Lab assay of single mutants.
Amino acid sequence: MPVRRGHVAPQNTFLDTIIRKFEGQSRKFIIANARVENCAVIYCNDGFCELCGYSRAEVMQRPCTCDFLHGPRTQRRAAAQIAQALLGAEERKVEIAFYRKDGSCFLCLVDVVPVKNEDGAVIMFILNFEVVMEKDMVGSPAHDTNHRGPPTSWLAPGRAKTFRLKLPALLALTARESSVRSGGAGGAGAPGAVVVDVDLTPAAPSSESLALDEVTAMDNHVAGLGPAEERRALVGPGSPPRSAPGQLPSPRAHSLNPDASGSSCSLARTRSRESCASVRRASSADDIEAMRAGVLPPPPRHASTGAMHPLRSGLLNSTSDSDLVRYRTISKIPQITLNFVDLKGDPFLASPTSDREIIAPKIKERTHNVTEKVTQVLSLGADVLPEYKLQAPRIHRWTILHYSPFKAVWDWLILLLVIYTAVFTPYSAAFLLKETEEGPPATECGYACQPLAVVDLIVDIMFIVDILINFRTTYVNANEEVVSHPGRIAVHYFKGWFLIDMVAAIPFDLLI
C-alpha cells in the first residue's frame, strides 16, 4: 500500500533555474538572501570558489559584500557603492579590487542584480563577478574607477581610450546646418538635424578633445543650467548677453562664444560640459537660429522629431539603469545623424518603425519583477520565466494532490484497515475457520451469522477504491517536481505499489 509523501509542494524551481543557467555559462556568482541580516550568502558556485580561493563552506553565510576579499588596494568608495546597491532595488555595476585567499590582487567587475517577489519586494541578490585585470595590471588604489561605466561593446579594446569628441564640431553647429540641408533625401539625416562627426583615429590627448566618459557625465550638469543662461549661451556672438549692473557675465554663455574659444586653444572642462549641455537642449539648428531671432517656433511634425517616441515608452518600462547606459552608448555611435529632440514631445505622434532597438522591449506582467540581467542570462521568455513566489501546480481535472487534506485522511483510514487485516486475518484463519468446520452448517442466516465476513468484505472494497484513487494521485519525481499527468501517474504506480495493492485487495476469504 503506498505511503508516498512529498510535502515540499507547491515547489518553486526558480532558484534552481537560475543556478542551472548560470552554471551553463561558466559564470562566477553568488546568491544572497536579502531578508536576513547583512544579506548572507546562501549559494556560491564553483567558479566563484576558484576565483577567490575560498571553499564553499568558508563563503556560505558570510555577508555578500565580500568584505573578506578586501585588501589594501580595495577602494572604500567601491565598497560603499556595493553596500548601497544592496540597500536599493536597481541593478548596478561596480569595479573593485579584490584579494584572493593567497593574497593576489585582481580588479573585478561586480554586477549586483536584485530579484523581487510578486509584491515588488527584493528577496534575493545575485552578484556576478568578472575579472577585468590581474594584480600586475591593477593601478594605484588612489585612482577611482567606479565613477565610470563599463566599456562599450562596439569599441575595440585597444581603442576604448582613444575615443574623442571634438569640441569644434559642437561649436560649428550653425555652420554645418547648410551642408545638412543640402544633403536632402540623399543624406542619412532628416531636415533640421545636426550631424556630429566623431574622430576615432588614435591621437595624443589634446586640450581640444573630450573623453567619452566626460560626455556621459554632461547629463548630470544640465539641471544646474538655468533657462535664461541656456538661451544666452545659444544666442551666440551676435547678441551678447546682458548683465545687470554690478553683475558679471555668465561664464556659461561665454563658453560657447566662437570668438572667445578661437582665441585660446584650450577650454576648461567645466565650460566644455556646460556648452555641450546647452546645445543638447535645442532640438535642431533651426531652433538655434530661432533663439537668435527671439522667436522659438513649435517643433515640426516630421520623422526626426518622432524618433524618440518609442524611446520614451522603453525608458518607462525599463527595469534597470543598464538600459540608460545602453541608450547613452548607442546615442554616441560615430558617423550617424543625431536628432536633438526633447523627450517631452507630442504624445499624438505616431511611433516610426526603427531597425535598431535601443531599449529592451516591454516586459510582460509575469516578468515585471525580474531584472534585465536575470532575463538576459536565463534566456527565457515571458511565458517560461515565473515570478519568485509559491505557485500552485497546474493539475488535470479529477486529480488528487498527494499533500491535500483528503489524501491525508484517506491514508490514515487505509492504515487502520491494514492494521485490522494484519490482526484479524490470522485470527480468523486459526480459530474461526476451525469452529466453522466443526459446527453445523448455517446457510440460512447468511452474513448475519458471520459479522467478521462483512467487515472483511468492506475492507476489500476499500482497498479496491484505494487502488483507483492512487491512479489519480500526484507524486514527486526525482527532481522534486509534482507530477499531475494521468499517464505518468499510471506508469509510476504500475512500477511501484500496484502489484502489492492488488494482492492485498483480493478477497481470499470469499474465494475459499
Rank of each mutant, 00 (worst) to 15 (best):
T329S: 13
T145L: 09
V110K: 01
G183N: 09
A228W: 06
T270R: 14
M133T: 14
H254W: 15
M218H: 10
R35Q: 14
C265P: 13
E214L: 07
L155I: 14
D16P: 15
R148P: 12
P300E: 13
I19C: 04
E90M: 09
Y327K: 07
Q75L: 07
C39S: 12
S331W: 05
S239L: 08
F348P: 12
H147I: 01
L200M: 06
A32H: 01
V196S: 01
D321R: 14
Q335M: 11
P258I: 07
A32K: 01
G186I: 06
P151W: 13
G6Q: 14
S379T: 07
V222H: 05
G262V: 14
E90W: 13
Q61I: 01
V222F: 15
L109H: 05
R181W: 05
R100W: 01
R27H: 08
A217S: 08
G306F: 07
A204V: 03
G187D: 15
N369Y: 05
G6T: 13
T65D: 05
C39I: 12
A211V: 13
V110Q: 01
A303K: 12
A188W: 01
L200N: 05
R269F: 12
G246P: 12
S55Q: 08
I336L: 10
S266T: 15
R100L: 01
E50M: 03
L210F: 11
D321Y: 09
T201P: 15
S207L: 06
A253T: 07
D136Q: 11
L107M: 07
R76S: 09
L338H: 15
A80C: 15
H7N: 03
P151Q: 13
D46M: 05
F340Y: 14
N33R: 06
G6P: 06
T270P: 09
A211F: 13
A303I: 08
R27P: 03
K373H: 01
G47K: 08
G187N: 12
P299Y: 05
V374C: 01
V41A: 01
E289S: 04
A217T: 06
S140Q: 14
R269L: 11
G187R: 06
I336A: 15
P10S: 14
S304V: 14
P299Q: 14
G149K: 12
S264L: 14
A290R: 04
S304M: 15
P334L: 01
M291E: 14
L210S: 10
V198H: 04
E23T: 07
V138N: 06
N146L: 15
I123S: 13
G236W: 05
L338D: 14
T13L: 10
R20D: 06
V196H: 01
E118N: 07
G238L: 14
T375G: 08
E230T: 07
V198E: 03
D219G: 08
E357H: 15
P151H: 12
G88V: 12
A204I: 01
I288S: 11
L167F: 15
T337F: 09
G103I: 01
W154C: 04
D16W: 13
A223M: 06
R326N: 09
P240V: 12
S320C: 13
P310W: 10
V59E: 01
L69S: 01
L210V: 15
R301I: 09
L200H: 11
D199G: 06
D46Q: 09
C66E: 01
R242Q: 13
D321H: 06
G158C: 05
A121P: 11
G71H: 01
I336Y: 14
V384R: 07
R281Q: 04
K21T: 13
R252K: 13
M124R: 03
L127E: 01
I19Y: 01
R280V: 12
P240K: 11
C52E: 01
H254V: 05
R280D: 07
G71V: 01
D342C: 01
C276M: 07
I330T: 14
S263W: 15
T145P: 13
V112C: 06
A268R: 14
V41R: 01
I330N: 14
D355G: 12
T145R: 12
A203D: 05
H309S: 11
R356E: 15
G345V: 05
D342Y: 02
V94I: 13
L165A: 15
V110W: 01
S239C: 08
V132A: 15
G306H: 14
A80Q: 10
A142F: 15
L155P: 07
G226C: 13
D286C: 14
V122P: 12
A190Q: 15
A32W: 01
F22H: 13
N38Y: 06
R301D: 11
F125R: 06
I82R: 01
L171M: 15
S261Q: 06
R35H: 15
F14C: 13
G149A: 05
I96H: 01
F129I: 01
E134M: 06
C265F: 07
L200K: 15
L212D: 14
R76T: 08
A57N: 13
F125S: 05
T216S: 14
C265N: 13
A277F: 12
G306E: 12
L51A: 03
A9T: 08
T371V: 15
A303G: 07
S304N: 07
F14K: 08
K135M: 05
V41H: 01
S255M: 05
S304C: 12
I126E: 01
E95P: 06
Q247V: 15
C66H: 01
D346L: 08
A285Y: 13
T65K: 03
N45W: 01
G224A: 14
I19P: 01
T337M: 14
A307S: 14
K101P: 01
D199Q: 05
L155A: 10
Q335C: 04
A175P: 14
D259W: 14
E372G: 12
N128D: 14
L87S: 07
P258Q: 06
G120R: 14
N45I: 01
M124D: 01
P227Y: 08
S250N: 09
M60G: 01
F22Y: 14
A260I: 07
V8F: 10
A244R: 12
R35T: 09
E90Q: 11
E91D: 12
A293T: 05
N146C: 15
M60Q: 03
K364N: 09
I30Q: 01
C49M: 06
R326M: 07
F48C: 01
K362H: 14
S182P: 05
G103S: 15
I333E: 14
S320V: 14
N146A: 11
C39E: 01
P298F: 08
L338N: 11
A169L: 03
R20H: 05
R273Q: 08
K373I: 10
N257A: 06
L338V: 09
E37R: 07
E50A: 12
Q247K: 06
V377I: 09
R56V: 01
E230Y: 15
R5H: 09
S263N: 05
T17L: 13
L338I: 04
L107C: 06
C49I: 14
L167S: 10
S331M: 05
C52Q: 01
A172Q: 07
H368N: 11
E95R: 13
A293S: 15
S304Q: 15
R159Y: 11
A290E: 15
L343D: 05
P251T: 09
F348M: 11
A204Y: 01
Y43N: 01
T375Y: 08
R5S: 09
T65Q: 07
G238V: 05
P310G: 09
S318M: 01
P151E: 06
P150N: 07
R100I: 01
M291I: 04
G183Q: 14
Y43L: 01
A169K: 13
A307M: 12
L87Y: 14
L296S: 05
F22R: 05
S272P: 10
A142M: 09
L349I: 10
A253N: 05
R181V: 09
P297W: 07
A160R: 09
T305Y: 05
